[in-house]
Design a protein around this nucleic acid. Structure first.
Lengths: 333, 333
DNA sequence: CTGTTAGCGCTTTCAA
DNA sequence: TTGAAAGCGCTAACAG
């Protein structure tokens, strides 16, 4: 196809190309009957407007970009799901970019998107990001919504979950279950997300008069084997009776380590993790989780972005907080 | 940005826009020193070409589309991972469309993509697809590569896995483990993928002189609750001692049902499933799997598509088969 | 309500 | 090796 264009439609209908264009875009300055003649022929000939031409002229790409660390991740794939749903409702197209937690890629992607390829950007920043200065400039040039992983300091539109509160509650949950030596698997430490989760843990300990012990903190590193070794070491030398994992990716090796060391879950140690694993209840034992409303976060982020695009001006900066759900599973065993 | 365009670069450099364009595209009819002058200024001014203008004129969008049933799925998210990797190497952009297994959406998406928005399409067709006639036309209009879920009958480029062989081997594995009444959880029944997996099961039974029993087949339906009820019913009334699940989405409820019915895995029943779950070994008990090389399939599909785009003609129709891995876990218990 | 004209930013002839 | 000119298909501005 593509052979059929507005000019041909116009000839066929004895109209000017401009009128055809207006009719196709449902302009109010075209009579209803003309519109219907145009629509009928367009449909009959299977006409699809050329997006490049339209975009070049109108400066609207009907496309948004999603920049995330990784697609193959339970949270992000669900978020994309939500985003795509909203985009489709609006007849928008969705571009995907993976940073693999490399913040340079992030900046490079955005710079490549400032030329009109997309109307707006949804981003979850990489955990290696420290310097936010490039972003303070970028968000002036294109509508951006941050979701889940965002900056603390810059004035942007953010969609996030109640990281502090849910982490606090998860800790409280373990304490009420009798844990006194609760270890914390620390990740996303450059991000406000990670800091808040940590703070929830620390404050819950304090409010329960349990001493914070640095020896019980393991910080996530890139290397899987080292991570695993560190966790194993923690389990043997510190003998915690509870563990909070701030990411799914650390809870799973922790499970393996417990099995290997013959540490009984939840008898010897209780584990709760931030996780969106659909199969959590089938793990051995079922994994207690802090589950984020991932798809809803994606949807909400997309909705806010479209609101910004509709209004043709940038939204007053705001942060929307959705609530996570704590699902304890120890009892089911 | 976006304010800086070729015309401005040309003025600044005392060159014609045409020469600047040629230099930026590394044309061989431009002197090396001119190219370098252009590149230097372009970089300095952070120039990014307007993709709409470029595409409108050159009919190259540097964009591919990925049409899949669902992002939030272990196989497809890994496949996207592989696709995005190759696309980035080629400086291409990746659009994502979810069909939610609705074949009408599929056709609608493709029709919307025939207007130059993308240079090529990677597609995994929906399991509800029966009629392939729209596709026989579509694949003449744009380069398309089918991956994992494709048509049997049409002459297209396909990337797939050894569904028949791996299913045969999985069945053989259960038989060698002593199973005699092996049930089959049948899905993707409209697709050649599903048919081949079924055929592998049937032929393995035959080659081992085990009677094929229709009562042992459960066909996947959309409704989760009904699926679950059917599986439970199968377990109680037919008492199989082995189960092959042709998709992950049926193996998981099967696990739950066994637990609920106090059927011991793998003591009373052995289960193996087509699955790409990274956490398979943490399930209770560890899940024996037929694992597809998901990311590699995505990569390969993208590579072939780019080969088609490079050659500017359509690839001779071919089917590339990658091998799945069978991972038995019963022994680890 | 409809037509005419111009031009978005780029690439591609054709000519020098 | 470079420049001038045309035009991809569409829509916005201006007329009428």
């Amino acid at each position: 196809m593509g052979y059929i264009n507005i000019k041909k439609l116009a000839e066929e209908l004895n109209l000017s190309p401009a009128s055809v264009s207006r009719a196709l875009n449902d302009s109010h300055e075209i009579s209803k009957e003309t519109k219907e003649r145009v629509w009928e022929l367009a449909k009959k000939l299977n006409y699809e407007p050329n997006p490049s031409a339209s975009n070049l002229r109108s400066h609207k790409s009907k496309t948004i970009a999603v920049i995330i660390p990784q697609v193959a991740n339970s949270f992000f794939s669900l978020a994309i799901n939500g985003i795509e749903k909203i985009a489709r409702q609006r007849d928008y197209h969705v571009l995907i970019y993976q940073t693999h937690d490399n913040s340079d890629m992030e900046i490079a992607f955005i710079n490549r998107l400032l030329n009109g390829r997309v109307d707006g950007i949804l981003i979850s920043i990489s955990s290696s990001t420290i310097d936010n200065t490039p972003f303070t400039e970028l968000i002036k040039n294109i509508p951006i919504v941050f979701f889940d992983r965002m900056y603390d300091e810059i004035d942007a539109v953010n969609i996030t979950t109640d990281d502090y509160e849910s982490s606090y509650q998860a800790t409280q949950h373990l304490i009420e279950a009798g844990c006194q030596r609760i270890a914390y698997l620390f990740a996303l430490n450059n991000l406000i997300t990670g800091k808040r989760r940590m703070a929830g843990y620390v404050n819950a300990l304090k409010d329960n008069n349990i001493l914070y012990d640095e020896q019980l903190i393991i910080t996530h590193i890139e290397n899987e084997d080292e991570d695993y070794a560190n966790i194993k070491n923690l389990l043997t030398s510190e003998k915690p009776d509870g563990i909070i994992s701030s990411i799914e990716e650390m809870a799973l090796p922790c499970y393996s380590a417990c099995k290997q060391l013959n540490i009984n879950i939840p008898g010897d140690i209780k584990i709760i993790s931030f996780s969106n694993l659909k199969t959590a209840q089938l793990l051995d034992p079922p994994l207690s989780t802090v589950t984020q409303p991932a798809a809803e976060i994606g949807q909400k982020a997309a909705e806010i972005l479209f609101k910004m695009l509709d209004k043709k001006h940038f939204e007053p900066k705001e942060t929307i907080v959705l609530r996570s759900t704590i699902i304890p599973r120890e009892s089911t065993r």
